[in-house]
Design a protein around this nucleic acid. Structure first.
Lengths: 237, 237
DNA sequence: GGAAATCTTACGAGAACCTTAAATCGATCC
DNA sequence: GGATCGATTTAAGGTTCTCGTAAGATTTCC
């Protein structure tokens, strides 16, 4: 999330107070790379030289308007743009958004709102769409889907609880290797847990009841006496 | 996008210089099929013969006004229209837009602006309707249509509220995966929400009442204790 | 055989979640 | 500028299910 705040911003507005106000507020919010431009021409120059990641454009500029600037920019880039304007009429809004602006703020506005909308744009454009955050893998006939938190086998389906999910994730991340009981406890309870040893065993048992055909003779989640446990997974790396 | 520039334009204005100026500028922008009319009557004739795709109408004409012309045209067609006028009063604007004009430009104007607004109209009217913005999917017997914001089952139909829509969208975007309560709250309320945990639960319940046959024994929108919720959807990827 | 490590099962506390109703908010219409 | 209606939030009591504990059973290894 915070890497979004290291993106390069370009503010184009001919009014110094507004620019400074925005700049101050954005810096207070954690943005560091803020560039300014006062006019249409200067905006194009700065755009060339700094290659900003997002622009905040005033509609009214001394030597042209923001709409025209946007459509000029759009010929060579798809820079995300937030419009800033005193004119709040619907047509203007349509025009701006039709040209491919990403958002539109009418003056006067709350600085807070500007930041929120800006962050929304940055997230939308630059935040990598997180897919497949959790692994899905096969254990013999059964599929362990940490994505949806279930173990499946034909028609059967066993849901995993939060603790089981955390433990299985840790085990899978270290698959085919020994994971100490300490490491497992840490994964499920955090650093500062001092419960009974037995608690972990009970959870291991519960996991085995879901992933093993015969929980008492485990084939995948194996005990390593004196050390911990290991999850044997073949294939897929 | 460029095929929009092959649309037939009709310019109705009694001042030759203005017509010529617009004509020249539009041709420079790539428009090729531009027709002219000088009066109310001529406009109707040209309209009959060339069947333009969009019209730029001056409000003041020697033998009538643009508003009347528009309402005459509207009897037999829904030709998109951009008004051009020296009178910028709000009533005129309202009158024009009320009659179904698509946009309104006050003289003097930047030629650039005219083009932009014209393109905006053309895009709006002639651009192929962009495909569904929101998903429509099946949950058992019921169809969840986020495009129209309804859940249907045979004759029955349940409308979705704004919050329900936002939550269902987030859930569907992450279908078959666990979505944390935090992520759901963020989707429905934004980053800076500090309401009660319970609020989310109440909304989940409402959604279940619409998408589940037995809301108390959900089959699709499932709770994952300690983690969040998941919407189980089969098929379609 | 005996000690240590691990397994297994059952149960209850309490957290997490559900449910319903009432209060509040907000838009729309007289 | 109220009045009204639906959407949303708050509130409070109820329910369910996870998790941790305990205690006896079993396995392993010397």
């Amino acid at each position: 999330m915070d890497n979004l705040k290291s993106k390069k911003l370009l503010i184009v507005d001919d009014e110094v107070e507004i620019r400074e106000m925005i700049d101050r507020f954005l810096r207070k919010e954690g943005f560091t790379r803020i560039f300014h431009a006062t006019s249409f021409q200067e905006a194009l120059d700065v755009f060339q030289s700094v290659q900003p990641d997002v622009a905040i454009l005033d509609v009214m500029l001394p030597d042209g308007d923001g709409f025209t600037l946007l459509s000029t920019l759009r010929k060579s880039s798809d820079l995300p743009v937030l419009f800033l304007t005193a004119r709040g009429e619907d047509e203007d809004r349509l025009l701006g958004l039709g040209l491919g602006a990403d958002d539109y703020i009418v003056k006067p506005f709350l600085p807070r709102e500007l930041v929120l909308r800006l962050m929304a744009i940055l997230r939308r454009v630059y935040a990598p769409p997180q897919k497949e955050r959790y692994p899905v893998f096969q254990l013999g006939k059964r599929e362990v889907d940490l994505e949806s938190g279930t173990v499946r086998d034909h028609g059967n389906e066993w849901p995993l609880t939060a603790k089981e999910h955390a433990l299985l994730l840790k085990l899978y991340e270290n698959r085919n290797r020994i994971v100490t009981s300490d490491a497992l406890c840490q994964a499920a309870w955090g650093d500062d847990y001092f419960g009974y040893e037995n608690t972990l065993m009970v959870h291991i048992r519960r996991i085995r009841e879901k992933i093993e055909e015969n929980p008492s003779r485990p084939k995948f989640l194996l005990t390593v006496r004196g050390l911990g446990y290991k999850l044997m997974v073949r294939g897929d790396g």
